[in-house]
Simulated assay, not measured.
Amino acid sequence: MTSFISHTTVDCANAYELSEWWKPVLGYTDVPGDPNLPGHEECMIVDPAGVRPRLLFIEVPDEKTVKNRIHLDLRPVEGTRDEELDRLLAHGATVVADHRGKYGPGTGWVVLADPAGNEFCILRSEAEVEATS
Rank of each mutant, 00 (worst) to 15 (best):
T2V: 15
E126D: 10
V95F: 02
P53T: 12
K64L: 15
C121R: 05
H99M: 04
G106S: 13
R75H: 09
V10N: 00
D47H: 04
E119Y: 05
A49L: 15
H99I: 01
K23V: 03
T80Q: 10
I70F: 12
S133R: 11
G39C: 01
D62F: 07
A131E: 13
S125W: 07
D98K: 07
R87F: 03
L88A: 13
H91S: 08
A15I: 06
V111C: 07
C43K: 08
R87M: 03
L26Y: 10
G104W: 01
I45A: 05
R52Y: 07
W22N: 08
A113E: 09
T29H: 12
W109K: 08
E20R: 15
V129R: 11
P38T: 10
T2Q: 14
G50I: 06
K67D: 14
R75N: 13
R100S: 02
G79V: 12
S6F: 04
G108F: 01
V96E: 14
T94I: 05
G50P: 11
P115N: 07
G106C: 10
G117R: 08
L37P: 00
N14L: 02
V129A: 13
A15Y: 04
D11R: 03
F57G: 04
G108H: 01
G106R: 09
P76N: 13
P105G: 00
I5S: 12
D34P: 00
V25T: 03
H71R: 07
V60T: 14
V96D: 13
G39P: 02
C121L: 08
T132A: 12
I5A: 14
A90N: 14
D114N: 01
